[in-house]
């Protein structure tokens, strides 16, 4: 673990140093400070951390319980004072703890942006909530499949498959529907004096509420302007009227994802109960 922390933070520090060097060089040549470059550095670091949580958390959790089964230690744990919920939450916290060390250790690099302003503690707080949500969500999928499957390999494949379906699948579906809508509108004959409607991806946009990538992008878009424009919520919503969900997208999506995560964890605990899950 110390080696991983060293490599991870070493890389981050190198990128931020290069970024600062570039900013200083720009001042020397153009006599102007481009503050956006510091925000880009911030965006880079937080995206890296988000990806780390989203893609390493499943790797740590999807083999956690099936691995116990393979080692034949799961039944030993069941004969101790540990309950299935202790085992599932223990596995989840253990994986989360490992990643949290990486995330927290990178804070000094992240705080470089504080020197130049524009990102405050509230923004960081919201980002932390998003981190916890994606970690619990991805970890929840991991432990569910790990409880369900006898082999870690199958559990790994299923976890990443479902995660990909949620993260990329819902996004692709919305992009596809948006393109279809654009085509229809382009071919539409608009009477004189009327404005051409704006394309949207229809009701499928609400599927993005379950997509942690979309939540992260929306948070980041609120903090760093001119970023993730291609997959912005506004684009998918088009000219649809605002409602409670669209107005509070980030909070609603975080709430929904936490609710789904809790369901996944509850499912894993139910499956793990040896008395309920006996194979006749």
């Amino acid at each position: 673990m110390p080696l991983i922390i060293l490599i991870f933070n070493g890389l981050l520090a190198l990128v931020s140093l290069l970024n600062m060097y570039q900013a200083v060089a720009q001042v020397r040549i153009l006599s102007q400070v481009q503050y956006s470059s510091f925000l880009q550095l911030y965006a880079f670091v937080v995206t890296l951390e988000f990806s780390l949580l989203m893609f390493i958390m499943p790797a740590l959790t999807s083999g956690s319980i099936s691995g116990e089964r393979e080692r034949q230690t799961l039944e030993l744990l069941f004969t101790t004072k540990m309950t299935p919920s202790d085992i599932v939450t223990g596995k989840l916290f253990s994986a989360f703890g490992q990643l949290l060390v990486l995330v927290v250790s990178s804070f000094p690099v992240l705080f470089v942006t504080f020197v130049y302003g524009s990102v405050d503690f509230l923004d960081l707080g919201l980002l932390m909530v998003c981190y916890v949500t994606v970690a619990v969500f991805a970890g929840g999928i991991g432990v569910l499949f790990s409880s369900l499957m006898r082999r870690s390999t199958f559990s790994n494949v299923c976890t990443y498959g479902v995660l990909l379906l949620i993260a990329a699948g819902t996004l692709m579906l919305n992009l596809f529907l948006l393109n279809m809508s654009s085509m229809q509108i382009r071919n539409m004959v608009v009477p004189l004096g009327e404005t051409r409607p704006v394309a949207d991806s229809g009701g499928a946009v609400y599927l993005l509420l379950f997509n942690p990538v979309m939540t992260f992008c929306e948070i980041l878009r609120g903090q760093v302007s001119g970023i993730t424009e291609n997959i912005s919520l506004e684009r998918f919503l088009g000219s649809r009227p605002d409602n409670f969900v669209t107005q509070n997208w980030v909070f609603v999506s975080i709430g929904l994802q936490i609710a789904v995560s809790l369901l996944l964890i509850w499912g894993a605990i139910r499956i793990l109960n040896p008395i309920r899950n006996e194979k006749n």
């Binding site: 080692r71 034949q72 230690t73 039944e75 004072k81 540990m82």
Partner: peptide
Amino acid sequence: RDAFGYVPDEFGMYDNLKVGEYMEFFAAC
């Protein structure tokens, strides 16, 4: 569960743990 200890036919070991750590892990359980 306090009244019995179980030794299965398969050992059920954490090979990456040291003997002392293995014992302390189950003590914590």
